[in-house]
Design a protein around this nucleic acid. Structure first.
Lengths: 224, 224
DNA sequence: ACCTCAGACACGATATATCGCGTTCTTCGA
DNA sequence: TCGAAGAACGCGATATATCGTGTCTGAGGT
């Protein structure tokens, strides 16, 4: 999924949020979530480094507990705009306006909502695999199992490929038909992407692979 | 939602998990998630207090960084069973066995719930997606730049086909790899079937209902 | 003008800790 | 033995910090 905020945008938006008064890091997270109607929730790993940088640059002031670098933590650090922070916002007023419009539009988009919905639904399918896998695990095969595993896997793979082939043909047909009517929308492509992504996760989940994933697997060799 | 673990169950299950060796708190969270197929992910607020208590009772030993009570944090605390911890497990062996059965059953029933749920959700989702698609279609896009949305459907279809193609290649690759290891199971085929079914529903939902071509389309003629 | 490459950045994953709510279990006294 | 108070517990929400990956940008060199 592409980032919600482009390069310097989150940084700027945090300053804008602080215009309403001092906030904790966590408050900024929840406020952002609220403004996006729940479709986007920035992670802590997004917010805190940004706030640390802004403090470093003197645009915000952090109060109360120990510095973030030290092991001493102390809950609830409050951030507030410095004069330099206010100046930055005024200097980039055009960017601020543009950003606010862009956020509003993102929120309006239904596709995001649907996307999240679909993902949630598909996530649940993983449970099916877990259940069946558990059953297989807890109920070991009766009697001695010679070695039919290999040949079985092979024939099963054949079945899987057939299922996949059929699916592809069906979707292709749907697509062609819709195209004639000129009704293929961006939403279709987006949904396809999301759904197939989830599908692949589910399928991979049925194939044993360690969760800690020791294999480096050089599958990052081709840029796009 | 009712708790997944009853009163002392999580406590006991954590000890069982530590039988496999020392673990960090976070590792225990992910391991539990894995065992429940993603349907249950204990929050940090569930795990860490429990571990702290277990340490207090002398059933586990915590190593490396500062005490949890103090503000000093220090990443990565490792927990391991003490002799007393091992003794506890042995003493409550019956409970352990019962718990393991119960977990397996819980997972299975959760899966059933989800399975039943998926169809419903998908059904509702179809309507939602259709509505969204309708809106997108009838009201091109107000905010963004003036697009020449002439052969848009056609180009979009091209995108969709590319996505589909890539998905097919990826899954085929997964299948081949798994086959070499002989790990393609009936479960894989079953999951594939279910997931692709749901996927197709979602995709079709974004396309207008083609009343001219009912479900006919000879998709039940293949023997299995 | 074109390339590159280091630094900034967005983001999910990893990691840990506390608080408050609602439920369950365990005494202990009536 | 029954019932109630309090401890223990499960759990989501609150709170903060770091790491690794992938992307983008701009300054410098060619």
């Amino acid at each position: 999924m592409p980032p919600v905020f482009a390069h310097g945008e989150l940084r700027l938006y945090l300053l804008v949020l602080l215009l309403d008064g001092p906030r904790h890091g966590y408050e900024l997270i929840t406020e952002l979530t609220r403004r996006f109607g729940g479709t986007y929730r920035p992670s802590a790993g997004t917010i805190y480094p940004r706030l640390a940088r802004l403090e470093e640059e003197g645009l915000v002031r952090r109060s109360v507990p120990g510095e973030p670098g030290s092991p001493g933590v102390g809950r609830k650090a409050t951030y507030e705009l410095t004069p330099a922070g206010h100046a930055e916002i005024e200097a980039r007023f055009d960017d601020v306006k543009r950003l606010e419009r862009s956020v509003a539009e993102t929120v309006r988009s239904l596709a995001d909502e649907v996307r999240a919905d679909v993902r949630d639904t598909m996530r649940g399918l993983r449970a099916e695999l877990a259940a069946a896998a558990q059953e297989v695990r807890t109920r070991p095969r009766p009697g001695t199992a010679p070695d039919p595993r290999r040949t079985q896997s092979n024939s099963l793979r054949h079945d899987a490929e057939a299922v996949l082939q059929r699916f592809r043909n069906d979707v292709l047909a749907d697509l062609r038909e819709a195209d004639v009517a000129g009704t293929v929308s961006a939403l279709t492509v987006e949904t396809l992407r999301t759904v197939l992504d989830s599908a692949r996760s589910a399928i991979r989940g049925t194939l044993p692979h360690s969760t800690t994933s020791p294999p480096g697997r050089a599958d990052r060799t081709e840029p796009e």
